[in-house]
Design a protein around this nucleic acid. Structure first.
Lengths: 174, 174
DNA sequence: TAGATAAATGGAGAAGCTCTCCGTATATTA
DNA sequence: TAATATACGGAGAGCTTCTCCATTTATCTA
């Protein structure tokens, strides 16, 4: 990749992070391009769709979540490890203002995205298995993402996400 | 209201039901107006925002849900009544393709909408109380709506909604 | 029944969106 | 330094939501 192209790609990504964080679902690709100081054409060449942009942003954080999961898998309390990790997943999803949920849930479309999805699934299923939970990992992850999404929609209440997660996790092993 | 206005209002509502059911979040108000055989200006006078349109459509179904809740309150098994009603709420929310969830969760903005919200809350809290559940009705409803939303996002799987609801309801009294 | 009036209509158009195309500018290579 | 491949940005097409106002029409009154 040409060095100026790389630079522009990075600037678009940085602008997109800011814009998504600020505007959520109302983010405009035009404004992202403007904020990055590039033309719309440039943005679309690097990221042909909103998904592509999100995938690039999300991949980093998924890697962090997986690493955290591996750490927890090495720890001693399987039930606590599972609940801790699910909470981390939820916080991550909520921070992305619902995008992660929408994108990850609907996965399997983009190769990169389903890569993320598979990585999360893998760690999740091992954590579930070690805690003797029999529910499908897809269902549990969908539920956790849904809770993150819900807590986004409602008026801000710092404790709500925890209460919603508790509705699910309290039936899991302690 | 003048009779022609009433007629147009009804036609817009009918068109909106069809369009929302067919297109989901991608529904276009232009097309709704076109389908109803009215100009955009007419649509916007009757319903100044998408929310207003949704509120009108939703109000009917909320009334049905409340009636169902009252029936169940008169029955004999509090735990079963609660689970049955929560499932009905979820099916209703899913049928609205996520709009109900978004709108009802974010409530308290439009008077009509918060009316719906209050009605649902009222029935829900009585069902919860009778089943000796101590969770806040808002949290439970948010969780149920979130599950309906999640099941919408994922590839169609008729049993998924039930599995997701079970993640919540299995910790409630049987 | 006919005229007055208040209300509703619908379409033109402003502003913003996504996304494409292509002439121009520039980084890289020989 | 010259040639070439690549990336650039912005004009513009075709959407969208939403507003304004000249025109039409239902309803009321005499």
């Amino acid at each position: 990749m040409r060095s100026d192209a790389q630079q522009n790609r990075d600037r678009v990504l940085a602008a997109a992070r800011v814009e998504f964080a600020a505007q959520g679902a109302g983010a405009s690709l035009n404004r992202i391009a403007q904020r990055a100081g590039v033309g719309p054409g440039t943005l679309y060449r690097h990221f042909p769709s909103v998904q592509a942009l999100l995938v690039a942003i999300i991949s980093d954080e998924v890697a962090v979540l997986c690493a955290r999961g591996e750490e927890l898998l090495a720890g001693s309390d399987p039930g606590l490890a599972l609940r801790t990790w699910l909470r981390a997943v939820a916080v991550h999803a909520a921070a992305m203002r619902g995008f992660v949920a929408v994108e990850l849930l609907g996965a399997a479309e983009s190769p990169a995205l389903s890569g993320c999805h598979d990585a999360i699934r893998d760690v999740g299923s091992r954590l579930l298995h070690r805690a003797s939970v029999e529910d499908a990992v897809d269902d549990v992850l969908a539920a956790v993402n849904a809770m993150a999404w819900a807590s986004e929609q409602l008026p801000a209440d710092p404790a709500r996400l925890d209460r919603l997660l508790t509705l699910i996790t309290r039936s899991l092993p302690h």
